[in-house]
Amino acid sequence: MDQPNETVLRARNLRLYFQTRRGPVQAVDGVDFDLRKNEATVIIGESGCGKSSLAKAILRLLPRNAGTYDGEVWLHDQNIMLLNDESFRKEIRWRRISMVPQAAMNALNPVMRIGDQVSEPAIVHMNMTKEDATKSAVRMLEHVGVPIDFLHRYAFELSGGMRQRSALAMALVTLPDVVILDEPTSALDVLTQASIMNLMKRMKKELETSFILITHDIATSSELADNVAVMYAGQIVEVGDARRFFTKPLHPYSHALMASVPRLRETIEPEFITGQPPSLLNPPTGCRFKDRCPKRFDKCDEAPPMFIEEGDRQVRCWLYDDAIQMSRPEYQVVA
């Protein structure tokens, strides 16, 4: 094994709540995770688990009803949570952390030409001249495989795949340290999805960028992932190396999530989780997954901390508490 890459982004106890008339929605509730240079961390979970809010919290793209917003986000050795909004906008957003928003293909400005849209971040955030920005935009569009004569076209004249590529070029044009991809392929056809995934793999190899990929498509996420973080009800319940995660998930929720993915070449009957993810208005006390968990036991009424497994994997489940594994063999984790 060679030396692990240096850590680019580190979130510690990051929280983002939304104010509503019925009380605070705890969308991101004490999230810790690390992203290393030139790697991709995939954040998976069901709709409403707080994945997209986590992206917004990192990029500080807060809606008007944002309430509690605290914790630490370290970009290299700077805690960017301490910056004021103006410096954050000038120094961090898009220049060092950029994003491909959900449904990016529909997020493009319909009345602006593709070339102008892709070069805009370079003008605004990098203070480039229009000419230089256009040059960077052209280079990046070529890089992501958008033909150069599309520069003068509008979004509606492009196919879904080409729009997705343009949105990606827009996020990469400033050569940021971190790119957040929110469901980058979910609205696309299988074949287009495959070519976008191949493109992102190539981008990861060629540029020194790190990626945070937010998705509910587990099979697709496995194409890009170095690390996997599983989110449930505003919290990360498992995080660790992707290869080991995909062969043997630890948390009962991860297990259920993986088991519900239809397989092409296996005849095992998929299992599924009954019920719905809990409301983030009043998340259950104790373990948040306990009401849907097949392995629930009395200890689950207490909130589990993160346990370390296999050296560097983390899992938020009492089953991995050494004391419990020793004292109650009936709760042994079945591998």
Binding site: L191, Q193, A194, N198, S222, L224, M258, L264
Partner: peptide, 28 residues
Amino acid sequence: FKTPKHPYTVALIGSTPILGHADKPLTT
């Protein structure tokens, strides 16, 4: 799925990611 014959079917199947086999690029 075992013996797809048409080149289009072959490509469609090849474009589907398989969990834990991310080493080679997907077919497009």
